[in-house]
């Protein structure tokens, strides 16, 4: 897609890939993300923010934020990715560009612990009420053990033993 060429001229693009005819992936830096989004919205017709998603790359020590945009006229998708530091995940909000981003950012804050500066509602509880552990979608969170400890189980003894083994294997793999 020729959008990529224009993006490469104007911004610092660290990687790109054409996945399908109508889907392209662009990787940029945190400094350039908001200019890229504004450019894509105003000049290239990517008017809709489909969603924001987050991926936990635990081994690399990174969080990946993906902004999925949609051009309703040309029927094209573009995904803009950035990487954040996993120890201190802080980024700026984009809810002034797309108001619907507010809820996505709130959910990512709740599930991954990424901090969006300037988002007015991100500290409110969306799904998890009175959550006390680390954010549950982080990969170092052992959901099986948490579920077994908190909610109890009804399985026969053998099933419980198998589940405990699985959860221990998970812990071991995490330590590596």
């Amino acid at each position: 897609m020729e959008v990529l060429n224009r993006l490469r001229e104007k911004f610092e693009i660290t990687g790109d890939k054409v996945q399908r005819d109508d889907l392209a992936l662009v990787e940029t830096t945190g400094k350039d993300l908001i200019p890229v989004l504004v450019y894509l919205k105003t000049y290239e017709g990517f008017k809709t923010l489909v969603m924001i998603s987050c991926v936990d790359w635990m081994e690399k020590g990174k969080f990946q934020l993906s902004y999925n945009l949609w051009n309703p006229e040309k029927k094209k998708n573009i995904i803009v990715k950035i990487f954040l530091d996993r120890e201190n995940p802080v980024f700026q909000t984009i809810y002034k560009i797309w108001p619907q981003a507010e809820v996505y950012e709130r959910e990512i804050h709740e599930m991954f612990g990424v901090n969006f500066e300037g988002n007015p509602t991100q500290d409110e509880e969306l799904i998890l009420e009175d959550w006390e552990e680390i954010p549950p979608m982080r990969r170092d969170f052992n959901t099986l053990r948490y579920s077994m400890e908190k909610f109890g189980e009804r399985e026969p003894k053998s099933g419980i033993i198998i589940r405990k083994q699985i959860s221990e294997q998970y812990d071991e793999w995490r330590r590596k």
């Binding site: 799904i127 998890l128 959901t143 189980e153 399985e155």
Partner: peptide
Amino acid sequence: PINGGMYYDSYNAINRLDL
């Protein structure tokens, strides 16, 4: 509600309703 079903390892869905 019986034993968690496919959400047996979910952090958010309960496993036994009769508790």
